[in-house]
Nucleic acid binder design. Structure first.
Lengths: 200, 200
DNA sequence: ACAGAATACGAACGTTCGTGCTAAAAAGTC
DNA sequence: GACTTTTTAGCACGAACGTTCGTATTCTGT
């Protein structure tokens, strides 16, 4: 890895941290350059445009997300244990990744949902992939017999995402210490509702 | 109502619409002045500072929210019917209010959760009040015997908010037509889980 | 109709925005 | 160690940002 790629990665690490506080659209080249300890134009040269920088930040965020949420969950047994691990990793990942603020992907989802363009597309694709992988974990839980066979997987994922979103709002906006416990309670209720009947 | 107050209200109506597309922090005085058909300085004089304008927009959004979500729900019988009305009104209110984008309060919640200051405080207070009123409706449903007496009201509201948030993300980011039906399904499942036993 | 107040405008402020251009410094290659 | 390529800094640009100020216009009460 040449010097260029090295500093590029360092920039992106700072960028993720900054974006988690001010959002992806609030990420300005000048402020990021200051934080990274280099000149505006020097930093700019790595990306060529602000939009390209935003896309790079999103890609990097997604990598980190996979690293902190999906990868460790693979150690758990397919089915409910893995699904539960996914959920708890998801609820804690920004903290584990030492981000000072919110999940950049989620912030960007709110900022760009009405701004057509490449950034919006990337955000949508990123979150869609997250839902897809979550759906896969749910499907495995069904196949393992941990959830009822007639479970509506998309609906299940839909509700999981809702639990995550409200937990983040409660935690970040209201500083509610009970946010994660409440989210886990909601998760367990959801699972209980889809428990296979005993005789199966 | 003098001329001043009149145009001030007109400005705020435009501001809510614009904020629903670009967010409350993305709301710039110049762009709003263009949209309102007046000069930057003329508009600015109505508020004295950008922050004051943002606070006015939030207050106005909250009024509109109450008008479209809470007020019509009062026509329904206390208990489950009113709660259901609240939920459907909530899921559709931006459309009913003819906002071109998302709920400004929700956007602001994401933008300001890491930006200490008066705006953040106002957003938190606004959403907290929303949760409180929702909690009140849940409590009435418990008292009416529509929900189990041991219902954890805060937890119930928590899950309602989650349903709303994921519905908005699905609708706005993914243009998912099934978002509202899925949200209503989730709501009915939540209600079913808290149904009083038959013999009571 | 007229005086006084309220409201709106245009111009300009200093700053920051994203983005080029050019030259210096650093890194990689032989 | 010289040469080439890559990386960084410096400077400037036009535009937009929030804000101030002085002046013009429009409203309001009498």
């Amino acid at each position: 890895m040449g010097k260029g790629e090295e500093t590029r990665q360092a920039i992106l690490d700072q960028a993720i941290a900054l974006a988690s506080e001010v959002g992806v659209s609030g990420l300005s080249i000048g402020a990021l350059a200051d934080k990274a300890g280099m000149s505006k134009s020097g930093l700019f040269a790595h990306f060529g445009s602000k939009e390209e920088m935003q896309l790079a930040v999103l890609r990097r965020s997604q990598e980190r997300f996979a690293e902190y949420v999906f990868k460790p969950a693979l150690k758990e047994r397919r089915g409910l244990p893995r699904l539960r691990a996914l959920m708890t990793n998801w609820l804690n990942w920004t903290e584990k990744a030492r981000l000072p603020g919110a999940c950049p992907l989620n912030s960007a989802a709110n900022e760009f949902d009405d701004q057509p363009g490449a950034v919006r597309d990337a955000v949508a694709a990123g979150l869609a992939e997250g839902r897809r992988m979550l759906g896969n974990a749910v499907r495995l839980a069904v196949e393992a017999g941990d959830l009822r066979a007639d479970t509506d997987i998309e609906q299940f994922v839909f509700e999981l995402v809702g639990i995550e979103l409200v937990a983040m709002q409660s935690q970040r906006l209201f500083r509610d210490k009970q946010a994660i416990p409440r989210a886990l309670d909601a998760f367990e209720r959801l699972v209980r509702d889809h428990q296979p009947s005993r005789k199966e």
